[in-house]
Simulated scan of single mutants.
Amino acid sequence: MKEENGCISHFEVFTTMAFLLFADENVDFAVIEAGLGGARDATNIISSSGLVASVITTVGEEHLAALGGSLETIAMAKAGIIKQDRPLVLGGPFVPHIERIIRDKAVAMNSPVVSAYDTGNKCTMKSFSILNGRPCQICDILIQVVKDMKMSCKLHDVKLQMLGDHQLQNAATATCVALVLRNLGWSISDKSIRYGLEDTYLLGRSQFLTSEEAEVLGLTGSTVLLDGAHTKESAKALMNTIRMAFPKAQLVFVVAMASDKDHVGFAREILSGVHVETVVLTEAAIAGGVTRTTPASLLRDSWIKASGELGIGIVHDGMAEYSELLKEQPVGSESNLGDGKTVLATESCLKGCLRTANQILSRRGDEKRVIVFTGSLHIAASVLASLAG
């Protein structure tokens, strides 16, 4: 309350609006995602009688300082959403002692536990394909649960629009939740689960723009990906996905981040994945304001530090060499390539980012290129807002 000047927070306002909307629409199920931990989160006002199941997907270092400073305290905070006698679904995988903290809380609350990564389950990514002009991954999701709650489901050749191993694990977790509901008496067929998984997409998460949308942004011929990754764990997952789907493409990243994130850790994961051609660092309003926005100049310092730790050569906009890169020269000219170094630029707005990205990419001719907007869901939202006019 002190940090919010005695007022309710931006997140609390939107949480209240969501609950009111769900009530007005008389929804059958409401999926409520905690914003910060769980135990003391604004969303955690639901009693056991109003809860069907709790879900804990992973335990990472996000909001470390606010949640006690360790993975153990974060696990305890997340375990706060477990309610008396209500099932708990675990996504995982978890470090063993972290999982023990969560399971001990489940035992104390008499909550049956279903784990999406139990040895009886098998989830396999088989191939990539194109569905309705966008990439998708073809997967098998085989669930066989025998502990606490008995349930099974075999789904072959599921076409997931959400890409990456982490999204496959999320799909397995969602399948387990659906099976829990079925176990509790809801009529949910395997066919319905498949349809739900294949029809699922999230704006700003593994979202590929159409070629028409890319053209509106002035990025004709580029594959444009929006992904709200903002932790080092999600950055690693993002890079794994890009490596699998676009192993030979030239990569350009446009990054904006909140001030409470691990900027160096995020940069390290992006730079250590594959060669990155260009990174354009910018700013986006966070939670309706700029108080949590990281200045592009500070982000640049973090990326310079990360590149130094990794031994990666960079050319940034504080160097004379950078100015030479942007001079008009023939397409494909070797003098434009930065001698294999990563180009690091800063811009104050999205329009400037698009201009800089185009300016540098124009030197690459017809080579396959992927432009990734990431670091925050807010930069993804800025891109979508620009498309909406």
Score class of each variant (00 low, 15 high):
Thr119Pro: 02
Lys341Gly: 01
Ala77Val: 11
Phe94Lys: 04
Ala237Arg: 01
Val113Leu: 11
Asn132Ile: 00
Ser152Trp: 05
Ser259Gly: 11
Ser115Cys: 07
Arg364Lys: 15
Ser272Arg: 09
Gly311Asp: 09
Ile32Lys: 00
Cys176Asp: 06
Leu184Ser: 13
Glu198Gln: 14
Ala18Ser: 03
Glu233Arg: 09
Cys176His: 08
Ser302Cys: 15
Leu298His: 07
Met257Asp: 05
Arg182Trp: 05
Thr173Ala: 15
Arg369Phe: 05
Phe373Asn: 03
Gly91Thr: 05
Gln161Glu: 12
Ile138Met: 05
Ser272Tyr: 05
Gly37Ala: 06
Leu251Tyr: 12
Phe94Gly: 06
Val13Leu: 13
His316Leu: 06
Leu337Ser: 14
Gln169Leu: 15
Glu215Asn: 10
Ala357Asp: 00
Asp165Phe: 06
Arg369Leu: 09
Phe19Trp: 06
Ala65Pro: 04
Arg363Pro: 05
Asp165Trp: 05
Ile56Asp: 08
Gly60Pro: 01
Phe11Ile: 08
Thr15Tyr: 01
Met257Gln: 08
Pro295Thr: 04
Arg369Val: 04
Lys351Glu: 11
Asp104Ala: 15
Met109Gly: 00
Thr294Pro: 08
Ser376Asn: 13
Leu384Ser: 03
Lys83Met: 03
His63Gly: 01
Trp303Phe: 15
Leu344Ile: 12
Arg300Asn: 15
Ser335Asp: 11
Ile286Glu: 04
Val264Gln: 07
Leu163Arg: 04
Leu64Ile: 11
Ile102Ala: 03
Ser187Thr: 07
Thr282His: 02
Thr58Ile: 11
Gly352Leu: 14
Thr173Asn: 13
Ser47Ala: 14
Phe266Met: 10
Leu350Tyr: 00
Ala108Ser: 15
Val177Ser: 02
Glu212Leu: 09
Gly365Pro: 05
Thr356Arg: 14
Thr175Ile: 13
Ala171Asp: 08
Ala178Arg: 00
Val343Phe: 07
Ala258Pro: 01
Leu203Arg: 13
Asp41Tyr: 00
Ala380Gln: 05
Gly318Tyr: 13
Val177Cys: 04
Thr374Met: 10
Gly311Ala: 06
Ile188Met: 11
Gly218Thr: 10
Gly204Gln: 03
Leu155Ile: 15
Gly196Pro: 00
Met239His: 01
Ala116His: 07
Gln161Cys: 10
